[in-house]
Structure formats: structure tokens, C-alpha cells
């Protein structure tokens, strides 16, 4: 099994990098390919079983888009072949149609694989929590972002939100899912925080694995689900 980690050296804000370590602990026999921003992506010539990319700064986001732009057709092909790709934080935004950076008054085209747009504003930081349903499981997570995705994700959302916001403050449908390309604004350690989702994500590749440190991870997960479900806990 081959797992490709894209640009971990710069796409690991907010603890996102530990998703990689959690995958490594869960899949000790897998080969992990760490593609740096200066490398040719492994997926260009091969088909990885899983791909992961984490959150990044806005300057890096622009660079990542330019890096991946020549591979747009190949990425589209991988998406259509149902290769599981997980993009956390603002990483999912690179797959959208375009991104407007309000503070700098600039706009760039994204990779265009997802029919959504993005607006980024340095002077409006949004923080939030999410309790949501996905494929019969509850997902918990955190959000901290300058940007919001805009558009209609009613046909391709990732999470049905119970508490917290979805794509934007008016929505209860969070992120997007196109085949097995999952983009979510939940950031940080989404896999160790959600061991059941970690197992699900791996299963999309056809492999089965028990999440690492499952007992302790489930203990922490159950506590968080309990807290997030408590009406006394503010969102």
C-alpha cells in the first residue's frame, strides 16, 4: 500500500501533520511517499492508494496551486478512479474554481475540480467546532480559518452538521466530496480525533486496518462527542 503525503513540510499547520503520523501508526506496513514542494508528485506517474494534504498559509496555498496546476488532468483522472484523497483545513480550497484574497485584492484560479469558490479575508478570523454525521458515524472537529467556500454543495457535501456551521455560516452542509476526494474545513488532527473515520478513509482504498491506539483514541473521541452534544457547551 502506498500513501502519498503532499507537501508536508509546509502543509502541516494546526497539527495536521499528525494525521500523517497517525496513518503511519495505523498502517505500519504501508509505504509513505513524502512529496516536497520541489519534487514531482508521486501520483504523476503512479497511482497511490491514499493521498493526504493538510492546511497551509495563504502564500503557500498559491504556490501549491501553481505546483499542482500542470497535474490537474491527472488529478481529475485519479478522482474519477476513486482514489481516496483527504484535504483538511484550507487544503480543499485548492481544488475549487477560484480563490479571492480580499486583503490583498487578488484572485487566482484554483484547480477547478470542485464547483465551489473561496473568499479569504485576513481581517475576519473564524473559529468554530463541528459535530456532524457522516456514513452512520459522528464526526467531531475544529475549525480556524480566514476563508469560506461559497456555492452549492448540496449534492456533494462531506458532513451533515448537527452543531456548528457548514460550508459557510448559513449552511449545515460542510465541505465537499467528489468521488473519494474529500475536502473539509475541519483542521488539525482529524484522524486521531476520529478513529472510526480514519478506518473508513483507509477502507476507501480497499484495505482494512484498526486505528492506532484505538482504545485511548476512542476514549478521547467519546468524551468529545459527549461534550459536543451537551447543549451547555457553546458552539
Amino acid at each position: 500500500m502506498v500513501v502519498e503525503i503532499l507537501f508536508e513540510e509546509v502543509c502541516s499547520l494546526y497539527g495536521d501533520g499528525q494525521n500523517v503520523h497517525y496513518l503511519q501508526a495505523t498502517l505500519p506496513g504501508a509505504q509513505f511517499v513524502h512529496t516536497a514542494l520541489t519534487d514531482e508528485p508521486y501520483f504523476a506517474e503512479h497511482t497511490p492508494d491514499l493521498i493526504y494534504i493538510g492546511a497551509m498559509s495563504e502564500r503557500i496555498q498559491r504556490r501549491v496551486i501553481e505546483k499542482l496546476r500542470p497535474y490537474t488532468a491527472r488529478l481529475k483522472e485519479l478522482v474519477e478512479k476513486d482514489v481516496p484523497i483527504l484535504a483538511t483545513g484550507n487544503a480543499g480550497e485548492i481544488f475549487c474554481k477560484h480563490i479571492t484574497y480580499k486583503t490583498e485584492e487578488t484572485e487566482i484560479d484554483g484547480l477547478g475540480l470542485v464547483d465551489l469558490t473561496v473568499e479569504t479575508d485576513y481581517f475576519n478570523r473564524y473559529n468554530g467546532k463541528v459535530l456532524a454525521d457522516f456514513e452512520g458515524m459522528q464526526i467531531v472537529g475544529f475549525r480556524s480559518q480566514f476563508s469560506f467556500m461559497q456555492g452549492d454543495n448540496s449534492q456533494n457535501y462531506f458532513l451533515q452538521v448537527r452543531r456548528g456551521d457548514g460550508l459557510n455560516k448559513k449552511s449545515k452542509l460542510e465541505g465537499f466530496r467528489v468521488h473519494n476526494l474529500i475536502g473539509t474545513n475541519l483542521l488539525g488532527p482529524i484522524l486521531p480525533l476520529n478513529p472510526l473515520f480514519c478506518e473508513y478513509f483507509i477502507s476507501l482504498s480497499g484495505e482494512q486496518a484498526e486505528a492506532a491506539f484505538k482504545e485511548q483514541a476512542m476514549d478521547a473521541y467519546r468524551q468529545r462527542v459527549r461534550e459536543f452534544s451537551d447543549p451547555e457547551v457553546k458552539f
Partner: peptide, 12 residues
């Protein structure tokens, strides 16, 4: 207090 702390920082 009346909240559930974001633990993302633990992973950084």
C-alpha cells in the same frame, strides 16, 4: 468552561 477546548495545538 462551558466549552470544549480545541486540542489541535497538542498535535503541533
Amino acid at each position: 468552561i462551558g466549552n470544549s477546548e480545541s486540542t489541535c495545538w497538542l498535535y503541533d
